[in-house]
Amino acid sequence: MSREGTVVRDKAGFLERRKDRRLGVLTVLVVLGLWEAVGRSGWVSPFFLPPLTQVLLSGWEITRSGEVFSHLAASLWRIGSGFAVGAGLGVLLGVALGFSQKADDAIHPLVAATYPVPKIAVLPLLILWLGIGEASKVAVIGLGVFFPVAINARAGVRNVDPLLVKAALSLGSGRWGVVRKVILPASLPMIFAGLKLGVGIALLLVVTAEMIAAESGVGFLILSAADLMQTTRLLFGIMLLSGLGLFLSWLLGRVERKLIPWRG
């Protein structure tokens, strides 16, 4: 031991987490670089893995011709309307179930029984009922978004701190005031958690539905490229989906920060 004695060291130091965005960007760049290198090396046929630059080039062509935008617009429209319908009904039902024990006793078993059914399995039935057009696609997305939103909204309402409800009652609120001014804002964070799950599901379902029956959309773009063995277009379609997913969760994050400013 030295003359100064033993200096205390921070044993918990390794628990500290410091965020470094540059690392994430670096990883993406390295993967893209590897892709390009492997594609050019001749180790694999460009039919299986064309280099990144070729994929981007083919993407640029269909972007310039406007084809990409019509596919993107078709997919976005389906996601948007399916999401709006599913999330709207999900919030309504979830809040109702969370608030009324009677409604919950009556309806929750039905929800629990239908929730685990993979929604894509219902698509053929929806096509049978609603036709091959837009309605069946919007419906399957709506169905997929509906469940996580409803279940989260129900949980959010049920978990509202009863003390906050008491505070509102003591300040003169009636039942409706409690629902509108306490229960709804208090369950917003949970509802948003449900919406975030819903975005992922909507993306999954839109692509699947477009692969099964569509003449437009990013899913159709990918499948038709595969049919024609155009690997570059196929890979560009996949990159589009990655971008679309990032964009949608960014959008939802913005809305969330706007609506829930009290969460730090």
Binding site: L163, K166, A167, V182, A186, I260
Partner: peptide
């Protein structure tokens, strides 16, 4: 009421 746990509305 001023509650022991305050119950301020966080939103």
């Amino acid at each position: 009421v001023v509650f022991q746990d305050l119950a301020l509305f966080p939103w």
